[in-house]
Design a protein around this nucleic acid. Sequence first.
RNA 1: GCGCCCGUAGCUCAACUGGAUAGAGCAUCGGCCUUCUAAGCCGAGGGUUGAAGGUUCGAGUCCUUCCGGGCGCGCCA
Length: 568
Amino acid sequence: MKIKALLGERIQAAFQEVGLSGESLLQHASRPEFGDYQANGVMAAAKRAGRNPRETAQAVVAALDLDGIAKAVDIAGPGFINITLDEGFLAEIEPLAVQTATPQTVVVDYSGPNLAKEMHVGHLRSTIIGDCIARVLERLGHRVIRQNHVGDWGTQFGMLLTYMQDKAADSNSLADLEAFYRLAKARFDDDEDFQRRSRQTVVDLQSGSPTALEQWARFIAISASHCQQLYDRLGIDLGPDDARGESSFNDDLAPTVNALTQRGLIELSDGAKCIFLDDFKNKDNEPLPVIVQKSDGGYLYATTDLAALRYRIGDLRADRVLYFVDARQALHFKQIFAVARAAGIASQEIVLAHMPFGTMLGKDNKPFKTRQGDLIKLADLLDEAVERASLVLSEKEVQVKNPDIDDSEAAALADMIGIGAVKYADLSKNRTSDYVFDWDQMLSFEGNTAPYLQYAHSRIRSLFTRGEINPNDLPARTVPVDDPERRLAAAIANYHDLLEQVGQEGYPHHLCGYLYDLAGRFTQLYEHCPILNADQEARTRRLILSHQTASILADGLTLLGIRVPDRM
RNA sequence: GCGCCCGUAGCUCAACUGGAUAGAGCAUCGGCCUUCUAAGCCGAGGGUUGAAGGUUCGAGUCCUUCCGGGCGCGCCA
């Protein structure tokens, strides 16, 4: 149940009744003593109406119908309305019933690695943030279509295919894609004949030569399988069916430019086909073009993106298209969206949103690289994560806590914790800013980390194991009584609102913050109140709340793409 | 030169988009294991939110100007 929407409607109704216009400005209470929610809208509205804010608040509260929802509605300060929810109301909420009444078709564009090279840390953010938001939207009941816009076309493939041919390369020699790329590049840089043949291969490829296409397909298949291995390791919901590379829009590029021409948007500038839009200026304050076809007839990535957008809206019937792409491409997307609107590719009702993110930095606050200055391979990063996690586990003497965990279970745990820690470190920071990658911080069991949440979850599970209780035998709901119970119940009830917000705005760190807060409220209950050893009534109550908490933690971590061990 | 983003505790990050006394974790200091996982909990210190103006009942958040950092800006993607 969306509590905020419900309260918002009721307050709006009360505003109307007392002749007030404006928003209720409802938000969570900033301090516990203010209750659960606060509405801040009265002060501004009263000001506009020239009325006394405090008296206006009185009138709104008098007109406000929250029977069965709130147990207290107070006025504080200059005209804040503080709302304390009724415990019975909290108990009625099914926390995991989060399906929307108005499902949309949402295309989520994320990951998009360049298949000419191996995946490196630069692909991590797009991949895991996009994956999380796709899962959240799906959880809310939207029709989600994942689009992995892989870089599988372009001049660099001429070089790679020619080198592959020269070396009679098989999948084995492509096992280290990065090394292969470097060798091909080195050859290209100091061998003129090789350069000539590489350019010819590009021409062959673009003109549809069967031999070139066959080699290209072989290369792409091998490279894509490398990606797939990483997706599987990372627990990313992307497969071959989600991949729609640049090459797949090849045949649509000319029609796309034609469509723009017919709309009268195209101008020739130095032989290139350009679109000039009013809002974009270059460094000399002259109109800035979006170039869709080069003077030599070649197309550019703007063209590909427009063709892809035509497909997403025309064929996939998207209501929203979300792009999880590096913040540096902000201008590019602004232009693409503006062209798409001007050209009628996207009507005003369709939401197009660039969901930008910042750069991953090392502890020195510079882009995260090896000592040699190379980008770090994703595969190496994950190896190190698991290795470090397994080290932490042995330090913490996991066998003391759970003596019957054997080596293979411990290895599986290290995997879940290590990979989860890397993903969570990224997901828990504000998407739009750069963030500092710090092994010790992310693998710590203290603070807002994946291991802490996994641990909190396993602690709850162990309650049920130890008490030999099947959670399904418990009643589904309970009315909280003691303070820690109430605080926990209030957070549990808020899950739907939170997911709604994350699905709308695309900030996974809000989900992380929520789960951390939820886990904190649980451990407070756990520390301050006995659960298994409480009297029958309290025991049942607390077990129900514990089970709800564990369910949300498991659900939330799953939406983050992080695995949830039963014990650790 | 123009444009976009950022600057919050010693460090890493929050602050629900204009609300009440700016919050967490790490680090520092002090408490709590004969009852459910101490990988935990409770508490203390630590801030002129880069600076100065402005807008208003109210500003970390909005506007202006500086300072400092990152990124982008015609035929790469």
